[in-house]
Write a protein that binds this DNA or RNA. Structure first.
Lengths: 345, 345
DNA sequence: GGCCTGCGTTAAATCGTTTCACCCCCGACC
DNA sequence: GGTCGGGGGTGAAACGATTTAACGCAGGCC
């Protein structure tokens, strides 16, 4: 019935010592087939389940990794989480998912909890750029991988995507398609992704030899759907509208697109749109969205692999800064060609 | 430096016994203020962090709860997860998030892991209706709460939303608006939510006194965006199209809406659409989507509270089956009134 | 002055595993 | 025939906290 069936109960049941049971569990090859079967039988009959707490206490090897994300509501992060989860569970690790929701208070509470759990390592998208919480973790001997947050600190692993290159790709594409009044709807500049993507956009203009006036930055308070809607309203109110908009992420782009379409603006004929992240909803929008794809699951997988590798070979581990390349996915929202639209019937 | 600073190190440092340190941590009121401060100081200086494994081993009280969801990619589940996470972290519990992805193999692997972790309890959206995995957990003395999966089993807690009522609301609304050729795009019938929502839809037709022919069921293999797109293509190919579509969830509705809009079908003038779940993207769609709202975060919070309560008062706990009422949110995609649409300029 | 009472503290037992040193038996080898 | 070696086991220590019984000490009471 109750769970309190310990390795000792199994031992008595199988008429062996606890050491032998432990061996069956961890090094089956060293125990004679006959006894092994007996022990396995006892385990089965009693419904024995290892107690991981005791295990970890003795062996010192935890079986969980922590993941702290900025916003579980953003599909970008859920995809990263999925990648982490896949890799971790293949390695037999549990994933403890925490949502900091952009609050450093919540972040530190979660980090504290993870420290007490003595997790294998922590994957974190830090709220603050000062990385105070991250350093605290590392000082306690925990391995940490920064997610989507580049750093120069050689004492940390990091997995990120080249945001500057992504911004450049997006705007280069728009320029090549012939758009000449581009607005970048961007998040607050304390968000490093926002800053980087904008710098890339500026690079693109410079490299193309155009006047820097072809690109304008419109800042919004957050990288979400609502902010995108607000931005669209602002643009609609202008006497001279842009012919293309580059949004710092897809949530912004979706909000923007919705309001524009409802106002009768044709996309891309009147205004082209490019998003960022290429979340699944981007392809399913009213007008399929051109977007800069980040290898989301791969980011998660890689980060998980790094943190697992680091704790496998403590000491000799080389901290790595992995930087993936983004990839522009061109869809209908930014094609210059006039397309004949099907009409009902 | 390294993390291996134990309660014993703190004790020597503060010149007290380990018992006293433990008291400072757990029952601060019984220890004299002077010593308490001394101990706290030592903890601070040494950067001591409790080892939860040892704690749990001795006290038998775990500090984590498990959450197994069907699909982390679905915003519905991430919102539920957020609710769980909020409540759990207020109670000082960690949440171990697992994604079964609809595979019972993955599900049982995760359940096994959670059992070894001796989690406080498990919140699970079961893959199979036979609940084999769930029963195994309970037999091991673990408290379980079923999420979004009604059950008659009095030995389990369950938190769900009345899907039948939701289906009825949706179709009653469509009928009231005057739609008379309704197609319900539904998931496979082994998914109980799909079945229930359809039954509710049938109820609505019956109660309205209409002919049962006004409602047709179109089954698709999965409750996701792609299936919605496929369904739309099928409907477009028909010579006689429905005047309204009720989708078993919002992902289907978004896929459907996208394809219809691109084909030039006007929503709701030509075809009205009602979705289910009211995920945030529903309100931000090309045409804001009427949808049946489920209290997603509340589901998560309630489930977490139940599982925590159950383990606080073992034995005397009354298993509860909480059933929330869904709420229809009417937006533009299903309004009968002809609306004048704004045109640019 | 002995004794009881409380308070603060200590020492030891305990939780369920893993690990390691050691034991026993039996065949092989010199 | 004694010793070596090794396969197959055993048993106890250790992990780091919690918990509880016991203990020392100061003050108050009779």
């Amino acid at each position: 019935m109750g769970s309190p069936v310990s390795i000792r109960d199994v031992a008595t049941r199988a008429k062996v010592s606890v050491g032998t049971v432990s061996n069956v569990l961890n090094r089956p090859e060293v125990v004679a087939p006959a006894t092994r079967d007996r022990v396995m039988g006892a385990i089965e009959e009693l419904g024995f389940v290892r107690n991981d707490a005791a295990r970890q206490l003795r062996s010192g090897t935890p079986r969980a990794i922590g993941l702290v994300v900025l916003d579980v509501g953003n599909p970008f992060f859920t995809d990263v989480a999925r990648g982490v989860e896949d890799t971790a569970s293949e390695a037999g690790h549990a994933v403890i998912l925490c949502n900091s929701d952009g609050s450093s208070q919540r972040e530190s509470r979660h980090v504290e909890l993870l420290a007490e759990q003595r997790v294998h390592g922590v994957l974190i998208t830090p709220v603050d750029t000062d990385l105070a919480a991250v350093r605290r973790l590392r000082d306690r001997g925990m391995s940490v991988v920064l997610l989507d947050h580049p750093t120069a600190d050689p004492g940390l692993c990091a997995v990120a995507v080249d945001d500057r290159a992504g911004g450049e790709q997006a705007v280069t594409h728009l320029l090549a398609e012939g758009y000449e009044r581009i607005v970048m709807v961007n998040g607050p500049s304390h968000v490093h992704q926002a800053r980087q993507r904008h710098e890339g956009a500026v690079d693109a203009v410079r490299k193309s030899g155009r006047d820097s006036g072809v690109l304008e930055e419109l800042k919004v308070p957050a990288l979400n759907v609502v902010s995108g809607q607000r931005a669209a309203e602002q643009l609609l109110a202008r006497s001279v509208r842009p012919d293309a908009v580059f949004c710092a992420n897809d949530l912004l782009a979706l909000g923007l697109l919705q309001v524009l379409v409802r106002a009768g603006v044709r996309v891309p004929e009147d205004i082209a749109i490019v998003g960022y992240d290429d979340i699944d909803f981007a392809a399913a929008a009213a007008v399929p969205l051109t977007s800069v794809r980040q290898p989301r699951q791969l980011i998660g997988r890689t980060a998980a692999e790094l943190v697992i590798a680091e704790t496998m070979t403590p000491g000799e581990h080389e901290h790595q800064h992995v930087l993936f390349a983004p990839e522009l996915v061109v869809r209908e929202s930014s094609r210059r060609v006039q397309r004949s639209r099907r009409r009902p019937r």
